[in-house]
């Protein structure tokens, strides 16, 4: 029955688009296992509420898509933090192994990926969050602004600073 519901169609679209970004995002808070539960609950919440201004009907698909991402990420973040608090394992906001390597270890890190992760961890928290939202969660500037409460200009400035710092740390080499 639910299958023919237009809302189900919207939710299906949302699932197709945002499942992976949300899982990556939630995994940074609660780890990959619990992330799946958090994301499932996030999507289920769509049934009850959803973004305020978005009409969740078939004709409103396009409009729904606009406010949808920030809504999903806000719900997901709150839910993930709640779960992490409850289970007492609030970790650093990171998908990679949370242990921060000692400076000497960092020198011997040969994997480019690890170096990049380390460089990201060294960024100020706000910039780190934006880098992750941009790359792990594939959000646009506007969506990031809505989610974080910053202005689009601020998002642009912080990301700009973050990327320039990262570039200077790891070099621009591909």
């Amino acid at each position: 029955m639910a299958r023919n519901d237009p809302k189900a169609a919207v939710i299906q679209d949302a699932l197709a688009r945002w499942e992976q970004p949300l899982l990556r995002f939630a995994a940074g808070v609660v780890g990959p296992e619990r992330a799946r539960d958090v994301v499932q609950e996030t999507f289920l919440r769509l049934w009850e509420s959803g973004p305020r201004d978005a009409a969740l009907d078939a004709s409103g698909r396009v409009r729904a898509a606009e406010g949808l991402a920030p809504w999903l990420f806000t719900v997901c973040k709150n839910r993930a933090i709640e779960v992490a608090r409850r289970e007492g394992r609030m970790q650093s906001h990171s998908v990679s192994p949370p242990a921060s390597p000692a400076p000497l270890d960092a020198l011997v890190e040969r994997q480019d990926g690890e170096r990049l992760h380390a460089a990201i961890r060294a960024l100020p928290e706000r910039q780190q969050e934006l880098v992750r939202l941009r790359y792990q969660s594939e959000l646009s500037y506007k969506e990031m602004a809505e989610l974080t409460g910053l202005t689009v200009t601020n998002v642009g400035f912080l990301l700009h600073t973050a990327l320039h710092t990262l570039r200077s740390h790891i070099g621009g080499a591909p």
Binding site: E19, Q20, L23, R36, D112, V131, R132, R134, L163
Partner: peptide, 18 residues
């Protein structure tokens, strides 16, 4: 170049919902 490195490093596919 940094953009595509960040994307490929941070956007690794994760195990999806069942």
């Amino acid at each position: 170049a940094l953009d595509s490195r960040l994307a490929s490093t941070l956007r690794a596919p994760v195990a999806g919902l069942s």
